[in-house]
């Protein structure tokens, strides 16, 4: 997935001289996860450069550049570090178009690795997507495969509105299904590990059915797509798994069509449960599909605690917990 993201940036920087990227350690070094590797050599130090350890400062700089007319892509080294920039994102980037009646806009992309499963402890593991999905004016994108990551990042950079692009870092190097005690699976053996050369885009706001089924709908995104697939396989339940890909604005039509078909719904995310994005999904399913539901909607999520270092695998909503939820809603 790292190479796919790198390729998306490469493609867009080659196509559009107004695309530039910066962040902590992204320039000469190429980023701590190597997503910007080689870009400074290819495009020069003014198009891919290092920024001070100042998330609020670098997002503000991106907003100013966007107001000028550029399309900056900034990297926040870990999503856990995004909070100093929260005011600039929520009060400024998100509302600039609205508050200025279109005089100024924020065509900026904020990329950031997120989620756990890497023994990162509470400052390198968080999943803050609900905080951004809650904000009017932002789009929130979370890819689950290299193929999608490239097409979605290209679409995000081309967006004229600000996009929070969350990269599930546990699946940077392979489709992790939650079985942390098994050997790491590389992307090379996964069908969506292949990324086409050159330019292609996956429109924002479109979910993908990654497994068709009739018994129950699973709504997932990011790493949890792979966990849900493993749970379906291991439980033998004919689940239909939707990869939301863009969590906001979410693909409501795909969700409604699937839940109306299956009559049951399990929502999976790694973030903490209370007021998590799953609560919004559950409300939407209830509003749109109530008379088709045959069982209460279930949520499988991280627990409402900070991300605990040594208890990572008790915290992480793995395939066993997802499988249990699938069985529960089928019994209900």
């Amino acid at each position: 997935m790292i190479q796919a993201l790198n390729s998306a940036l490469d493609v867009m920087m080659a196509r559009d001289p107004d695309v530039l990227t910066f962040g902590e350690d992204v320039g000469y070094f190429g980023g701590v996860f190597r997503v910007t590797e080689g870009l400074q050599q290819r495009y020069g130090a003014t198009r891919c450069f290092d920024a001070p350890i100042s998330e609020a400062g670098l997002v503000a700089a991106a907003i100013g550049m966007g107001a000028y007319g550029l399309r900056p892509v900034v990297e926040i080294q870990f999503a856990d570090y995004i909070y100093p920039a929260f005011d600039q994102i929520v009060s400024e980037a998100a509302r600039l178009r609205y508050r200025s009646a279109g005089e100024f806009t924020s065509p900026i992309t904020i990329r950031t690795p997120y989620g756990g499963g890497i023994y990162g402890g509470q400052t390198h593991s968080q999943s803050p997507e609900a905080l951004f999905a809650h904000v009017a004016g932002l789009k929130v994108v979370i890819p689950s495969t290299p193929h999608d990551a490239k097409g979605l990042l290209i679409a995000a950079i081309e967006e004229d509105d600000p996009v929070i692009f969350l990269e599930p870092k546990r699946i940077y190097n392979g489709p992790f299904d939650g079985h942390h005690d098994r050997p790491i699976e590389p992307w090379s053996r996964h069908p969506a590990g292949e990324t086409p050369e050159g330019y292609y885009r996956i429109p924002l706001g479109q979910a993908a059915i990654v497994r068709s089924g009739s018994a129950v709908t699973v709504l997932a995104y990011g790493t949890m797509v792979h966990v849900a697939l493993a749970a379906a396989l291991e439980s033998g339940i004919d689940a239909e798994i939707l990869d939301l890909r863009t969590i906001w604005p979410v693909d409501i039509e795909a969700i409604v069509a699937s839940v109306k078909k299956t009559g049951r719904c399990v929502i999976v995310h790694e973030a903490t449960r209370t007021s998590g994005f799953g609560a919004e999904l559950a409300a939407l399913v209830q509003e749109h599909c109530f008379y088709h539901l045959e069982a209460p909607i279930a949520r499988v999520t991280g627990w409402d605690t900070p991300y605990p270092h040594v208890f990572e695998w008790e915290y992480f909503p793995g395939p066993a917990r997802v499988g249990a939820a699938l069985r529960r809603v089928l019994e209900g």
Binding site: G64, A67, Y68, D87, E92
Partner: peptide
Amino acid sequence: TQFSQAVGWAMASAYK
């Protein structure tokens, strides 16, 4: 908030 955004605008002007 505008103070640091202005620096970004100026950086963009220099970049171009």
